[in-house]
Amino acid sequence: MMMLSRTAAALYWLGRYVERADFIARLVEATIRLDALSPRPAGEAAWQSALAVSYTDEAFAATGHPATQAHVARFLTLDAGNPGAIIRCLEMARNNARAVRTALTREAWTAINRAWWLFANRASTGGATETLNLVEQIKGETRGFEGAIHRMMRNEATLLIQLGAAIERADNTARLVDVKYHLLLPAGESVGGAVDRDQWTTILQTVSAVTAYRWLYSEGLRPDNVIDLLVSRAELPRSLAACVEESVTLLSALAKRTGLQGEADRMARARLARIQKARTPDIIVGGLHEYLETFITENALLDGAIARQFRFL
């Protein structure tokens, strides 16, 4: 039986929202660490950049609060008024999951439902330790969800959830690199100059890449290597190259099962060919910001093509 279009859309968005919740959790976690290591002004800048990465800087400014850990951490996790907050991502994930209950296993559903209950009855994050605890729990539940998805039948439902996650992850990583790079290297400063070790470590932590970095690069922490890892190295699951490759694989698997192949497949494959050819030094010379901006735009176009191809209502 062919899947309902609405179900397909809900599964795809379920994947996106869970991934987004997980990303915000990592972002908050890494920023708390950075904040702890920095003197006060640098700390505020860290939180400001976390807001920029999650596209919520303007919404936060509208609250009138100073960009301190207490305010931003709450804003990014528990503030139901912030559409980018984890609580809202989980709520949207749960709504989508509820709408497709029959396409999910009980295990997958309960992971989402538990994550939502974690938040539903909480008003404040408390201090740094409580926030880290909360974030740790969320990461646990999203990991549980991913595990449950892997244990589900490898059918359209699973593939669509994973496709949503891959598209979301690509956007998150591109945005993270773009904002941090901007922030850390003001105009005129060259790559490889004096860098703040802690800041770059924060980036790696946000995408769980500290160990991967050590394995792949021997020179110690260098910005161009960090960029190379996050943009071009498909071995790192959260790199742009990996996300791009994964979207192609997932779309092909979907085409095989449903017989539906089209615009989205073509766009995804073209993107893969481009990223496989690109070399990091060229990207940096050509302008990393412009490169990432184009990537984010293309990612959004692919998202639209997926919606058309699978007739999302």
């Binding site: 062919m2 279009s5 397909a8």
Partner: peptide, 9 residues
Amino acid sequence: YMETIAGRV
């Protein structure tokens, strides 16, 4: 009919 990813059923 219902609207599915492969058209109407």
